[in-house]
Simulated scan of single mutants.
Amino acid sequence: MLQSPVEFFRTLPKKVCPECGQQVMEQAESYLQECDRCLSKKVE
């Protein structure tokens, strides 16, 4: 039996920053992989 799209997206694992392992707060239309803290370190 196929899973409904809503259930599929609800059960996806949370995105985790590959640099520090902190959970990334996802936003619509965002393709960032790192958390805000790690991104700000790269800008400095």
Rank of each mutant, 00 (worst) to 15 (best):
L32D: 11
E7T: 05
K42E: 09
Q33I: 12
V43Q: 13
V16N: 04
E34M: 06
Q27K: 11
V16F: 13
V16T: 13
D36S: 06
Q33T: 15
Y31S: 11
V6P: 03
L12M: 11
L12T: 12
F9W: 15
Y31W: 15
S4W: 09
Q22V: 02
Y31E: 13
C35W: 00
Q22W: 03
F8Y: 11
Q3A: 14
Q27A: 09
L39F: 02
E7R: 09
C20L: 06
Q3L: 14
K41W: 14
K42Y: 04
E26Q: 05
L2I: 12
K15S: 02
F9G: 05
Q33R: 13
P18N: 04
K42V: 06
L12S: 06
M25Y: 12
Q33V: 15
C17R: 00
D36W: 11
Q23H: 09
A28Q: 08
P18F: 02
E19H: 03
E7D: 08
R10M: 07
L32F: 13
Q22A: 06
Q27S: 10
V6A: 12
V6G: 05
Q27E: 15
S40I: 08
Q27D: 08
S40V: 07
K42T: 08
Q3M: 15
V43S: 09
K42N: 07
E34N: 10
R37E: 14
V24N: 00
L39E: 02
S4G: 10
Q3K: 14
L12D: 04
F8L: 14
P5M: 10
F8N: 12
P13D: 08
E34V: 03
S30A: 12
E7M: 04
G21I: 00
E29I: 04
L2Q: 09
K14T: 02
L12R: 15
E44H: 06
